[in-house]
Nucleic acid binder design. Structure first.
Lengths: 126, 126
DNA sequence: TCTATTGTCTTAGTTCAGTAGAACAATCTG
DNA sequence: CAGATTGTTCTACTGAACTAAGACAATAGA
């Protein structure tokens, strides 16, 4: 069962973090159509954010057509995200893990790695 | 000269985006000790955010010991970031670019790629 | 010395995020 | 049918981000 984590220090509003984590779990195949999201009360208990904040996140996901809330039952995934076949993700994940190991050997920290990726994804124009 | 961009839709406060972009430029070697940051008025003009907001970003960087503001002169980089030697970054960048090309061929979008990286960096526990 | 450029400060206002708390309504299960 | 569980709504409040605007002060260069 997917568990959410809210990083109060990141500066990103909590409801956006929750929304991103749901989308991420969907992209990685951890949440698939029919799966039930953690209940609002669950997320309140595990992440410490207010129920209205969790609802705000779930409401946006619903407006985006990704989930469907059913009072008394829960909130269910009703779409897929991610454009790659699951069998394509595993080799990509493995290659990326090796690259991360190399990067760490070279002394890069996580923020260095993110900076490199942002540069490469943006076309590396500099 | 490094140019900043503020994404109003990201939900991350503008001053944190500016701070992150300065750190990123330092990590990637685009800003080095002695370099001058864009002036507050420059950033106001190019990014559209308020001078007080830019100053807040620059103030935090100064408190972190990364830059030094000199009234009448500008704000100068006074530290290094990034823990890898520049000659280590280029091969890593090249390998990462190839991986990104593979990922894109498999149909991954940028958000998919970020999700995979976050998973790998967090240890891939699932 | 004067002008231009730079960072800095202040006040007051708006908007948004988040909270607390209580209560309501729909669904499900025993 | 009743209780438990779930999503939902509402009000009122606090705090943070951001803005506008003007003015001040330090530095640099002509």
């Amino acid at each position: 069962m997917v568990e959410f984590h809210v990083d109060r220090g990141s500066g990103l509003p909590a409801y956006l973090q929750l929304g991103r984590q749901v989308r991420e779990a969907m992209r990685l195949g951890w949440l698939q159509p029919g799966d039930r999201l953690p209940t609002v009360r669950d997320v309140v208990a595990t992440s410490g954010v207010n129920a209205n904040t969790v609802l705000k996140a779930y409401r946006e996901l619903e407006l985006a057509g990704l989930v469907e809330a059913r009072q008394g039952s829960g909130t269910f995934v009703k779409a897929s995200l991610g454009s790659a076949a699951p069998e394509d993700l595993d080799p990509l994940r493995a290659t990326l893990a090796r690259w991360v190991a190399e990067a760490r050997s070279a002394g890069l920290e996580d923020e260095d790695i993110y900076a490199l990726l942002r540069e490469v994804l943006s076309g590396g124009a500099q």
